[in-house]
Design a protein around this nucleic acid. Structure first.
Lengths: 108, 108
DNA sequence: GGGGTATACCTAGACTGTCGAGGTATGAGG
DNA sequence: CCTCATACCTCGACAGTCTAGGTATACCCC
């Protein structure tokens, strides 16, 4: 699986990972890897900019935590973030439907 | 539907459109639009470079035709092209499975 | 106390593929 | 002859992801 296949859907993946509970950056990467059963093993350089963007847009809030002297930035999804997640899911379902049709070959 | 959502899958869409029979560029765009029920209305500037790339790689062959004085470049899928189409379909199915899992929200 | 590994954050620039905008040319219809 | 549809093409812009680099702490083993 090419990692860049998630292009355009990273926001949705991050929001979905946070929908089940707050987490810090490293943990989000692990969650996405686990949820996709290993398929999406994202680079930190891909995820951190997304988190900053989503925080700036108000889809996430963040707070710093110190655990055993290690600092962590814990992200939590907001109500606007949940709304965005819903529309990301819809967008994915629409894409899936159209791709299944256009690609053919019993992919449906 | 954002057109750029097809990023990474344009090759597959073009190959699938040609798998049912030869066609020229303009026609391929129409086929993809029809097959996706209007969802993928691709720009010429997106498709022509793909055709040239696929021709150069041997997935397609092309011949010039003259119909009523208008020239057309008719593309046909090759055996390597069909092999590539099969792997593009597999790649799409894998992505679909992983996205459904990781995105959650009853998308499955 | 030194080295290696895991955790945990960050950024700048490279890269890739699609799109927008522009161009050429023919034929049909008004 | 002007416009519209067909039909081809290319260049540069753009967005989003990745590569590669950086910082820092904690833990374990020697």
């Amino acid at each position: 699986m090419r990692e860049s296949d998630v292009r355009g859907h990273l926001d949705g993946l991050v929001l979905a990972a946070l929908a089940v509970g707050a987490a810090h950056g490293y943990e989000i990467i692990q969650r996405i890897r686990d949820r996709s059963v290993g398929a999406f093993d994202l680079a930190e350089g891909s995820v951190y900019p997304v988190l900053h963007r989503l925080e700036a847009s108000g889809a996430l809030t963040a707070r710093w935590e110190a655990v055993n002297g290690r600092r962590r930035k814990v992200y939590e999804i907001t109500q606007p973030g949940r709304t965005q997640l819903t529309s990301e899911r819809t967008r994915w379902r629409d894409l899936r439907t159209s791709m299944d049709r256009a690609l053919g070959g019993a992919t449906a």
